[in-house]
């Protein structure tokens, strides 16, 4: 088979690229504009033309100034996403393992139960948790936000890892047993490398969900924990035009996701399967 793309494939590929990158172009332009009104195709006055004259920081000057609180929000977002993902993995791997491999009474019910958070609206979960925490006198903090994010993330995580385990060839594990591997060795050297691509994919999901959840973050943080999502929401919820600052925030909020996507894409490209077996 030839590696050259046909004309149709090229057209489709460019279309796909356009669909992915296209929306970012007006954002990038808006973020460096001073005035960009209809019917101008490009901003009529650019941000840098007015920078010096402005009394208060404009566009990127505002975004990068400590007053915008971008850095703490970015730190919170990354920290929360990382914590949520690690905790979710620790909880989901054993659950997925059992659901995929064992047959037991009430298994269907358990699966349905794990999927429930997907059915219950986020707002109901958020208010419910908020009231419970309030009753116990727990203040809004990073910790409460992490707990809240686990609610929508765990069902996805368990689902994805369950199907990963279902596709895992049990014979491989039996073979490790036969060759005298301990349970830990078997998990570390055989099972983990085999499910690693699945874990990465599930983690990607977890990070993407966590960075984008607004309602739960707002409620469980009691408005005190600022993340990129709450920052952007406070900025754009007043509606109307996409001003330079909102555009810049929107560009930045995509960064954690893009970064992690790049990271997982790289890891998935390496031959984790063979690499893992080699170490054994």
């Amino acid at each position: 088979m030839s590696n050259r793309l046909t004309a149709l494939q090229k057209v489709l590929l460019s279309f796909l690229l356009l669909a992915f990158i296209g929306p970012f172009l007006p954002l990038a332009l808006a973020s460096v504009s001073f005035r960009w009104g209809w019917p101008d195709l490009l901003p009529s006055i650019w941000w840098w033309e007015k920078r010096e004259a402005a009394r208060l920081p404009l566009a990127w000057d505002y975004v990068l100034d400590p007053v915008s609180r971008l850095l703490p929000a970015l730190q919170n977002t990354v920290l929360i996403a990382a914590l949520v993902t690690v905790i979710a993995l620790v909880l989901s791997i054993p659950a997925a393992r059992i659901l995929a491999r064992q047959k037991f009474r009430g298994k269907n019910a358990a699966e349905l139960y794990f999927a429930l958070p997907l059915i219950v609206p986020e707002i109901a979960t958020g208010i419910g948790m908020f009231l419970i925490f309030l009753q116990f006198g727990v203040q809004g903090s990073l910790f409460t936000v992490v707990l809240a994010h686990l609610v929508p993330i765990l069902p996805y995580m368990i689902r994805m890892l369950t199907s990963v385990y279902q596709e895992l060839d049990g014979g491989m594990l039996d073979q490790a047993d036969l060759l005298g591997a301990s349970k830990m060795q078997r998990f570390r050297y055989v099972e983990l490398p085999l499910i690693l691509p699945g874990i990465l994919a599930a983690s990607l999901f977890s990070v993407l969900i966590s960075t984008n959840v607004f309602l739960l973050t707002f409620y469980m943080g009691q408005g005190q924990v600022e993340t990129l999502a709450t920052l952007l929401f406070a900025k754009v919820s007043s509606g109307g035009a996409l001003d330079p600052v909102a555009a810049a925030f929107t560009l930045i909020i995509t960064l954690p996701g893009i970064f992690f996507l790049g990271l997982t894409a790289r890891s998935l490209k390496d031959d984790v399967f063979a690499g893992g077996l080699d170490k054994g």
């Binding site: 009104g37 209809w38 019917p39 007043s238 509606g239 109307g240 035009a241």
Partner: peptide, 12 residues
């Protein structure tokens, strides 16, 4: 809201 109204104005 007022921001949406400003957009209508700015866009002529």
């Amino acid at each position: 809201n007022q921001a949406a109204n400003q957009s209508l104005y700015n866009n002529g």
